[in-house]
């Protein structure tokens, strides 16, 4: 056991530069040849928010109970976009790095992990967009806003777990990559991003609460939009799936990784 821990510590130290390089590479590739570069991480959510609030505030007229709809929207959007991007990127992490994996030994989970991390970096730029939006909406700021990072950490763990599984499965069955785009679309409508939770019919409410993203977003909105302490149910709804899915994803990945090399 001790030997195993030492090996882990050694590997973590040895491959830290690689994770850094991979994140840098991902960010570089993402904004290669675009004029505004990183500014897009800030601008994109703002523009999306503008378009969507325009559409939804004119066609659907949701009852927002006194909170700003654009702010409500951009919070949900930012978190969901992170989940969408990180899992989609992770899915191709093993396949896309086949040339490296075939020729040198690298712990394979590093690739999906680095992809999730680089999406996380992009998301933290996007948080800037929320900071810009808050004063415009006149939303009062409470001390609870200091907890905004809690759901992000659990969401990171959750996305990482899902990404690990997807990256491993996509090696064996490329069909997953096509199927997942449908899954993520359904998942988006199933999560209160652009509609208020109040429109969810009572008999479906339990079903909606089984969706971990529901709780990550609820926690984030509690601290930023509503300025209140998230309920203990919300805390649990974030922590449990975050930790469990991360560990589960890791175990599944470890089981599946053995034969990667023969399939990529």
């Amino acid at each position: 056991m001790k030997r195993k821990l030492e090996l882990w510590a050694y590997q973590a130290r040895k491959f830290r530069p690689l994770v850094k390089e991979l994140i840098k590479r991902d960010l570089k590739v993402k904004y290669r040849r675009s004029f505004l570069g990183y500014v897009w991480s800030l601008l994109n959510p703002l523009l999306m928010m503008a378009v969507m609030s325009l559409v939804f505030s004119h066609f659907f007229r949701f009852q927002m109970e006194g909170v700003s709809y654009p702010l409500y929207l951009i919070c949900g959007q930012t978190l969901f976009n992170f989940f969408n991007e990180s899992t989609n990127q992770s899915m191709f992490a093993i396949l896309g790095n086949a040339t490296l994996l075939k020729k040198v030994y690298i712990p394979k989970f590093i690739f999906p992990l680095a992809r999730t991390l680089s999406s996380f970096v992009t998301m933290s730029f996007s948080l800037g967009a929320i900071v810009i939006v808050i004063p415009f909406t006149g939303t009062p700021i409470t001390p609870y806003i200091l907890l905004f990072w809690v759901p992000l950490v659990f969401l990171f763990l959750f996305s990482c777990g899902v990404g690990l599984v997807l990256s491993a499965l996509s090696v064996y069955f490329r069909d997953i990559t096509h199927l997942y785009s449908v899954v993520i679309l359904a998942w988006m409508y199933f999560t209160p991003i652009f509609y208020p939770t109040t429109i969810i019919p009572d008999h479906l409410s339990l079903l909606f609460k089984l969706n971990p993203l529901y709780h990550f977003i609820a926690f984030f909105r509690d601290t930023v939009v509503y300025g209140c302490m998230p309920s203990s149910a919300t805390w649990l709804g974030c922590a449990v799936p975050g930790v469990v899915v991360f560990l589960l994803g890791f175990l599944i990945f470890r089981k599946l990784q053995k034969n990667f090399i023969l399939y990529i």
Binding site: P17, L18, E21, L22, R25, T99, L100, K103, V104, I106
Partner: peptide
């Protein structure tokens, strides 16, 4: 092992020096 072990062919030689170094555990 083989040509270009640990290289990313889309990156430049310079970028690959750092990537390949990182693969072996050396920082920037």
């Amino acid at each position: 092992i083989e040509l270009g072990a640990g290289f990313d062919y889309d990156l430049t030689g310079r970028e690959n020096v750092f990537l390949n170094g990182a693969v072996m555990g050396f920082d920037r």
